[in-house]
């Protein structure tokens, strides 16, 4: 079973919280990278298991936690979390 909570995500610290990327869900569409208003993200050079380039955080300081990456992602592969609102492990 591929229960989401059993998976391991990458987490980056940004000024007001965190950005999570669940690489194995990513299909490399590039929406989050393209439409991030602060250009926080870039496509990584490595591949995930499906052969796509997942996003990675390249400019964490620029993140204002607007959450558009989370909104635009079609694959539930990236999301943001405000400081102090964590319910993740």
């Amino acid at each position: 079973m591929s229960e989401l909570q059993e998976r391991v995500a990458k987490r980056w610290k940004v000024p007001k919280g965190h950005i999570y990327v669940l690489e194995e869900f990513c299909k490399g569409c590039g929406f989050c990278v393209e439409f991030c208003p602060k250009k926080v993200l870039a496509q990584a050079s490595h591949f995930n298991d499906k052969g796509y380039h997942p996003p990675e955080v390249v400019d964490p300081e620029a993140c204002v936690l607007c959450g558009f990456c989370e909104r635009i992602c079609p694959d539930f592969a990236i999301w943001v979390e405000e400081e102090g609102k964590s319910d993740a492990g």
Binding site: L4, Q5, E6, R7, V8, A9, K10, R11, W12, K13, Y20, V21, L22, E56, V57, V58, D59, P60, E61, E70, F76, W79, E81, D87, A88, G89
Partner: peptide, 18 residues
């Protein structure tokens, strides 16, 4: 530019819409 921040690896994650 500051060096790329290295991510942590976090198990048992919960997407906000889960």
């Amino acid at each position: 530019r500051a060096a790329r921040a290295a991510p942590e690896f976090v198990p048992r994650v919960r997407h906000p819409l889960e």
